[in-house]
């Protein structure tokens, strides 16, 4: 009996500690989420009037919409371009500037600069830099007699350009996390490798990578989650154009909700996105766990 009371007491302290955060998140995240989930089963207008229960019709509407599938395809394209590029660049850079020196600190500081600016600012600035008419990049290419593409206005190049913006903006963030992980790798491991006569490549693949694998897993998962929700850079630069080639799911959701005011389909497609992210993340965690066991 006494033990039970003690356990409750202990539990109570725990609950008290998390109460404020949980209250905030319940009220401002969970309740809105539940509201959205529920309302996805209804048809209604932006004045929140004329609620009519329609079951899964909103989901059918979305799944029948070519534009949704197109936006899913674009989102996957973005994730597949952005995540590997960002991770590879940041791993390489982190390893290259891991040694403590004044120069490396300068590099680190510089690479992190875009991270602290807002996506809006970075995206607008880069778009203007590549602008066909006033941008310095096309102007220089023209000067050197090279072919020039109006990248944000070209169906083939618009998405790569958006990926470029995203990598530019966030590789520094990933790099910092990996740098932190690298600092935790004991020096003795490298010394042992050197004694064994391992080359640079061998050290990198046999020592460095495995030691920071958990951190890599962490950044891979978070950047996949983030990439699936890509919006700001698209909204600021192309709004989904040209020819819907850069319309990502969140941009689609935004358009449905605020441009064409089809609230039901907007919420339904957002929920579909949530489910997709959930599945991908769980799959990732599983793969991550398996590979961890193999070490």
């Amino acid at each position: 009996m006494k033990w039970k009371a003690l356990a409750w007491n202990k539990s109570a302290v725990g609950y008290l500690f998390i109460l404020p955060s949980v209250a905030v998140m319940t009220l401002f995240v969970i309740v809105p989420l539940l509201f959205s989930l529920l309302s996805s089963l209804y048809s209604f207008d932006i004045m929140l009037q004329n609620f009519k229960f329609i079951g899964l019709d909103n989901f059918h509407t979305v799944l029948d919409d070519d534009r949704f599938w197109n936006s899913l395809k674009n989102t996957v394209y973005f994730v597949c371009g952005n995540v590997p590029l960002q991770i590879v660049i940041s791993i390489l850079v982190a390893v290259a500037i891991n040694k403590k020196s004044r120069l490396n600190i300068v590099f680190r500081t510089v690479y992190f600069l875009p991270v602290v600016c807002s996506m809006t600012i970075v995206a607008m600035a880069i778009q203007m830099m590549f602008d066909f008419n006033i941008g310095i990049v096309p102007a220089l290419l023209r000067e050197w007699g090279l072919p020039v593409v109006d990248v944000f206005n070209d169906p083939t190049w618009a998405m790569p350009a958006i990926i470029l913006i995203s990598v530019y903006k966030s590789f520094g963030f990933t790099m910092i996390i990996l740098l932190a992980a690298l600092q935790g790798v004991p020096e003795s491991l490298y010394e042992a490798a050197e004694i064994d006569g391992a080359g640079r490549a061998a050290t990198f693949f046999r020592i460095t990578l495995p030691s920071i694998a958990p951190s890599i897993a962490f950044v891979v998962i978070t950047s996949i989650i983030g990439s699936f929700q890509v919006f700001d850079q698209v909204y600021v630069t192309t709004k989904g154009g040209p020819m819907f080639k850069t319309e990502t799911i969140v941009q689609y959701v935004y358009d449905k909700a605020f441009v064409t005011n089809e609230m039901g389909p907007a919420i339904a497609s957002a929920i579909l996105l949530f489910i997709i992210i959930l599945i991908v993340t769980l799959a990732n965690l599983r793969i991550g766990r398996k590979s961890e066991q193999n070490f």
């Binding site: 602008d131 066909f132 008419n133 006033i134 109006d150 206005n153 070209d154 154009g241 040209p242």
Partner: peptide, 10 residues
């Protein structure tokens, strides 16, 4: 130029 070029800037 390509459709949807920024005609104001041009």
């Amino acid at each position: 130029p390509a459709p949807n070029s920024d005609n104001l800037k041009m």
